[in-house]
Nucleic acid binder design. Structure first.
Lengths: 226, 226
DNA sequence: ACCCATCTCGTCAAGATGACGACAACCCGG
DNA sequence: CCGGGTTGTCGTCATCTTGACGAGATGGGT
């Protein structure tokens, strides 16, 4: 029984919503292969490091933010030819974050930036990262339906309209404000009402909420409502 | 940039329904560590083998059946101490199969057998396989809600009652035959009606169906209906 | 003051759900 | 051959949810 050596990496699909658009964190590769191309941030797992710990470390290195960001395993990619240099298996992770400051912190990937997914030419991504990103987007879209995960894109306190903007950005189409409001506020455990506050986005001040304790929405929100 | 060597394995959670009970394929370990304990079937990924190909190869080695069985990636487990012999990363796969013949085909894991999950002492499983199995079960239970995947447990042609038995076995509680029948037959694309046939399970013959083309159920079946 | 934008609640028809009655179609034993 | 047991299929009905949309509430700007 042989156990041939593999290199194991983590790759991150870091999504956030900026200015109403779903964006993903990408780095510009400085070295071959795919020098100059855009790629997902990531790196090698260290010899005594847990996979989740490696993902969180890379996340912190790239964004400066570590805890408080939702992070879940996405899938693992290990086609024999996915990296021309060596046999590599990559464990991909999906991170959902509130609007983050533009990454600048001096790291190995200084050229990290957020790109709106609509503006992105998937085919231009390095390695098999187009596939990984597509899987991450689909996972995010699906999870908004049956989990309260959209709150991971919001700050600690947020309005129903801000939450709705997340859904609209991720799903790519508008939702009815009144029906959305009814759905999220009348689903027990989805939101916790902040008695006091409210803020102004132009019109009548809105009540602020925090995420509730609910983990699974049933019945789910439907991606198709108008 | 170092890339320390890891051993990469695949582990399989093979589920099937026998005699109305959800069962999982387990092997009895012959060697240390965990000699004599039950474990999920699995093995090392070969140097030039795709991960999916490795999973399907192991599936065939253990069950004698390869194609036609639903196989999807579950998650990847890579805690540094999960295998005391070496640093191992395991990509787990979930397989859903119709009732299979008892595995006997001479392989390295001659002691493979199906065990009803209710009868199983999770803590007795080797390595972190209890966790993997739990994740696989939860995945299977969840997927039955929003996908027509229950058909993967059935033969090519099956009755509504057989399909319902799958749901009842996986979810662990009975469903109303009439409401279930309405739901699955009136959801376009879920089932394809076989004009001709029918069979006998004791009472009135039932129409036979094949799986339809539908991939996602919306609205989903709810795990909680009586 | 007035207008305007946004938030929040209400109404209403259409459809889905859960509970359950009723009949249909087959097997079996007498 | 006939009636009971068993299982499959359809129908009904109250209730809940959904999608569409009206309308008042509550702030800022001019």
């Amino acid at each position: 029984m042989e156990h041939p050596p593999f290199a194991v990496t983590v790759d991150l699909v870091v999504l956030t919503v900026r200015a109403g658009r779903l964006t993903v964190l990408l780095v510009e590769r400085g070295e071959a292969p795919y020098a100059g191309a855009l790629a997902l941030p990531g790196g090698f797992v260290r010899p005594d490091e847990d996979l989740l710990a490696a993902a969180r470390r890379e996340l912190r290195e790239e964004t400066g933010v570590g805890d408080g960001v939702h992070l879940e395993q996405l899938a693992t990619y290990g086609a024999p030819d996915r990296d021309p240099r060596m046999r590599t298996v990559s464990v991909a992770w999906l991170a959902l974050a509130p609007d983050l400051p533009e990454p600048t912190a001096g790291t190995d990937a200084a050229a990290a930036r957020f790109v709106a997914v609509d503006d992105l030419d998937l085919a231009a991504l390095a390695f098999d990262h187009a596939r990984i990103l597509a899987d991450g987007l689909e996972r995010a879209r699906a999870k908004l339906e049956y989990s309260p995960l959209a709150t991971a894109f919001c700050d600690e306190e947020f309005t129903v309209a801000q939450l709705r903007a997340v859904y609209e950005a991720v799903w790519g189409h508008p939702l009815d404000p009144r029906n959305f409001h009814r759905k999220v506020t009348r689903t027990p455990g989805f939101l916790t009402e902040t008695e006091l506050t409210s803020t102004a986005d132009g019109g009548r001040p809105a009540r602020l909420y925090r995420r509730g304790t609910l983990e699974v929405l049933s019945p789910p929100l439907t991606r198709g409502d108008t």
